[in-house]
Nucleic acid binder design. Structure first.
Lengths: 242, 242
DNA sequence: CGCTGGCTTGATAAAGTTCAAACGGGGTGG
DNA sequence: CCACCCCGTTTGAACTTTATCAAGCCAGCG
């Protein structure tokens, strides 16, 4: 839920995981002008190629970044949960090279690029923290490249589940190896480079093997050790400050 | 070849494509302390997980970033040519999440993180230009995700060739649809998520179809329109300033 | 002139796709 | 409150792409 008073408090908390901000820096971040917006599930938030003039901060819900292909449908590039800044990737580029869509109904805050750049110029610590966020996104991209290039369906799914669990846990949206799973099988398939039919079979196999259980949009990791072994999962790339 | 006087001149030229630097900024960049190093082909330059204390600038030759897997071998994450800063990705992270290796014999300049951060703090324009470079790398990562997830072998290879040609052309290392191709078939396979056997067959098919010709490490794109159509190639993501 | 590393080819197997149909369950309107 | 509907899920069968294994080839180099 977006908190009432300071919606951008979430930025301070997110970036503050790695950086200790001064009072002035915290105020500057909290006082950023923001436009709050709520979007229905499946709706587009940012269109690929539109001029980029603002960044969005996820306040509530899940969203994804994607590429569209003429023949082969859609490739999901990343998932984003509350606290994430999916298109900080475009802060220094003229236009986004990808679209952003809501997965669930979602609330986002838009912050003008100009204001963010101003802050980055005035406060080196804020620049470094924002820059760092974009580098972590890139590190996640790299693990996706490796999953898509060198892991089979089962390993890919296992890896994605491990990643999502830790990221959600870090923002208090998952614990005890249980996470909300609003993603439909076709969404998972579009992220993992598979068809939804094969996704379904992979999911079934992992359930019958006792690695996970999934019902009513709630995913339980029944065997974390097994799942992360299948995935060869090493959480370091997420740079979660614990 | 690294120029004699100012090896880091290359940074100024690279970043200067998008940003017009002041005299002071240009001097600051050129005067960065650098350690020049020459590496034989196939040798490691940076090990995954070692503390990151410096960034490398490619002065000559080709290098690549990669992940190693216990079972499935290697996934190449990116290729880098002169002017590139492959591990600028680690400037604000404690340690690289990937290894860097020379593809050909290569010359690189190492610049301490501390000095780069100092410059970024002192010169917002330099910070923005360096940050921008990391965002472009991330955009390239995204297109690789899409290639690996949703394109078949032929499309993937076509896309990679288009990308490499334009990037080399931008730094004056390719023109007239001819580019040096130091990559071996297993390298291409490791980048494109294929086996080298299948790589070989794909390459053969593209040659017999008249899209490319390849001999003695020299690749000619015989049908740019055809090749970019196969790949659905849109060069915008490279953000080359032309 | 023989070695060696990379390229090429063939035969077979596995992983994933495609097409098509049926199932299920939660929300809606009668 | 029940029947219906719809979207997502599940299943089957045939087919394609890519992997695997194994052997032979070629060109440049010592």
């Amino acid at each position: 839920m977006p908190s009432s008073g300071y919606p951008l408090e979430l930025i301070v908390r997110k970036l503050g995981g790695a950086t200790r901000f001064s009072q002035a820096e915290q105020h500057a971040l909290r006082d950023l002008p923001a436009t709050i917006w709520t979007v229905e599930a499946q709706r587009d938030i940012v269109h690929e190629g539109d001029p980029a003039t603002q960044c969005c901060l996820v306040l509530d819900g899940w969203i994804c970044c994607y590429h569209l292909l003429t023949e082969a449908g859609r490739q999901i590039l990343s998932f984003h949960v509350p606290g994430d800044l999916p298109d900080l990737q475009c802060l220094h580029l003229p236009r986004p090279d990808f679209g952003i869509a809501a997965v669930t109904r979602a609330t986002v805050a838009f912050v003008p690029h100009a204001k963010l750049r101003e802050l980055a110029n005035g406060f080196p610590a804020i620049a470094a923290a924002l820059w760092r966020e974009t580098l972590i996104s890139a590190a996640i991209h790299r693990t996706w490249i490796t999953s898509l290039g060198r892991r089979d369906a089962r390993q890919r799914l296992a890896h994605l589940i491990c990643e999502l669990y830790l990221r959600l846990e870090a923002v208090g949206l998952a614990d005890e190896h249980i996470l909300p799973m609003p993603l439909r099988q076709p969404d998972l398939a579009d992220a993992l480079g598979l068809t939804s039919v094969h996704m379904n079979r992979t999911l079934k196999a992992m359930r019958t093997d006792g690695l996970i259980s999934l019902r009513s949009r709630r995913l339980e990791i029944r065997d974390w050790a097994g799942l992360s072994a299948v995935a060869e999962f090493d959480p370091q790339y997420l740079h979660l400050s614990l």
